[in-house]
């Protein structure tokens, strides 16, 4: 388990990191390393240069600014899991963080690294979609905002372009009729999501479902928004039957991947089950 030779630079500023990326198109950003380093040790990834952004000041923060939650890309899973602020204003994030890997992984791994890596079974992408987050990508040419729905492109492929670094994740604060939940089946070996469903619901004043936002990971080559589920939920009160009917659409039109642990049929079924569970829990919390 010895990686191929590579150069390593610990960038002191974001500009320095961006300049290094611009000079070397095969360089990779080290942002926690809990996916990249194992791949390198197996020589499945052999980047000639690692640009470590772990010491860059001001990439690790959780703050609230004018109704917007801002999370720095280098914020660790543990920092999110244990954030009192997030537990109050965006509980989906701490809940989701608690499902990632194990304590050691959560202490080292970062939300930005994970989102940019876009593992098809990663937990964050489901939450990012369900929260309608915006992602701030920065390059030498400046910043741009990417919507969650546009960010996850294909298997481990995101909207980030060569030379771009994910800097921040922005989420609009929800109101007090919002309920959120993450439901997941853990792969017994890797801990990744066999299926993970993030639900973010807002009820109207009469208890009807005003807005539903559902992100699903683990099922396909990338995390996706379960549009059919969302539209089946919106507009009326959510009872058990209504939720089950909506959840039945969890994998509609999705190209499902099977593997040793879960076939395509079983994954479709799990997507429905965990969608139902996530919605039920979110509904209860919204009420």
């Amino acid at each position: 388990m010895i990686s191929a030779p590579f150069d390593y630079v610990r960038a002191n500023t974001l500009d320095e990191a961006l300049a290094l990326l611009a000079q070397n198109e095969d360089a990779k950003i080290l942002a926690g390393g809990h996916s990249l380093i194992p791949a390198m040790k197996l020589r499945l990834a052999m980047p000639p240069l690692l640009v470590d952004i772990g010491r860059i000041k001001d990439l690790s923060y959780i703050r609230e600014d004018h109704g917007q939650i801002q999370i720095g890309a280098m914020t660790t899973h543990y920092q999110i899991e244990s954030s009192d602020l997030l537990k109050k204003i965006c509980p989906l994030l701490p809940e989701c963080a608690g499902h990632i890997g194990d304590v050691q992984v959560r202490n080292k791994g970062t939300i930005g690294g994970s989102v940019a890596h876009s593992d098809p079974s990663g937990d964050w992408p489901a939450a990012i979609i369900a929260l309608n987050a915006e992602l701030v990508a920065v390059s030498k040419n400046g910043e741009r905002l990417v919507k969650a729905d546009d960010f996850f492109v294909d298997l481990m492929t995101t909207a980030l372009e060569a030379g771009e670094i994910l800097r921040e994740i922005r989420i609009n604060k929800s109101n007090d009729r919002t309920g959120q939940a993450y439901a997941k089946m853990h792969h017994p070996a890797s801990g990744f999501a066999v299926v993970g469903v993030a639900a973010n619901l807002t009820l109207d004043r009469n208890g009807g479902c005003e807005k539903a936002s559902i992100g699903i990971t683990g099922v396909s080559s990338k995390a996706y928004r379960a549009l059919a589920v969302e539209s089946a939920l919106t507009g009326s009160a959510l009872d058990e039957q209504k939720i089950a009917n909506a959840a039945a659409h969890a994998a509609d039109g999705v190209d499902i991947n099977g593997d040793l642990f879960a076939s395509e049929d079983y994954r479709r079924h799990l997507a429905q089950v965990f969608t139902k569970r996530a919605i039920a829990a979110a509904t209860e919390r919204a009420g």
Partner: peptide, 20 residues
């Protein structure tokens, strides 16, 4: 080889992506 032993959960997705 290595890709067979570690890429199990990704292979199907990777093949589909290559095809598309």
């Amino acid at each position: 080889g290595t890709i067979a032993g570690v890429g199990q959960r990704m292979i199907q997705g990777a093949a589909k992506m290559m095809a598309s």
